[in-house]
């Protein structure tokens, strides 16, 4: 992304611990949203370390697949359950049912059309009943007003390191706090998120 640019951010990297990133891990019992090219990575980070089943809902006509070998650096792929639904209405119904049940740790839902307020609110209520975290992967600008937080995750180029995964995470909507932006990097060895120097504008 042009505003991040190719300025070798690792040179200034102050490795910080996971706890320094506010609002992450995501607040449980609520539904969150994430957009941007790195949204699936965000979801994988959110699912990492939960050690409980994760349901990933997507419509059957979408050709992309999640690669379990790519998931390995985040979590054990045996925790992931995938559901292929015929339409988004079915996805929403399944997400509501799964959020309400409470036996899952996280429900990831890929959104392809704009949710109305009723649908967003129903998901939010279901998440509250079951105490399950919901995460909607949305296309840019398709957020629902009912979401607790909305993030934008974009990958950035890391000039120094290899095999690292620097990203820029921005909170662009927050019901219970302020907005912000961070450069983060997933540490595949330690299975944790490293904060790489606050991304000041």
């Amino acid at each position: 992304m042009p505003n991040v640019g190719n300025h070798g951010l690792s040179r200034y990297a102050i490795r910080m611990s996971h706890a320094d990133l506010p609002f992450f891990p995501l607040r449980p019992g609520r539904v969150h949203e994430v957009c941007g090219p790195s949204a699936p990575v965000f979801a994988a980070c959110a699912a990492a370390g939960l050690q409980r089943p994760v349901l990933w809902l997507r419509e059957a006509w979408l050709t992309e697949t999640l690669n379990p070998l790519g998931l390995l650096s985040f979590l054990d792929p045996t925790w992931v359950l995938l559901a292929r639904t015929p339409t988004q209405t079915d996805s929403l119904a399944l997400a509501e049912e799964a959020l309400k049940d409470g036996s899952l740790a996280l429900v990831v839902l890929e959104i392809t059309r704009l949710l109305d307020l009723r649908e967003g609110r129903r998901l939010q209520l279901a998440a509250g009943i079951g105490g399950t975290t919901g995460l909607c992967l949305i296309p840019e600008g398709m957020g629902s007003n009912a979401a607790e937080t909305r993030w934008r995750a974009t990958p950035i180029f890391d000039a120094a390191g290899t095999d690292s995964t620097p990203m820029r995470w921005e909170i662009i909507k927050n019901k219970s706090g302020t907005l912000g932006a961070w450069n983060v990097c997933w540490n595949a060895q330690a299975h944790r998120l490293d904060l790489v120097s606050p991304a000041g504008e």
């Binding site: 992309e64 697949t65 070998l69 998931l71 390995l72």
Partner: peptide, 8 residues
Amino acid sequence: PRPLRLFP
């Protein structure tokens, strides 16, 4: 290292 997402 393998990609997280695969597509046709």
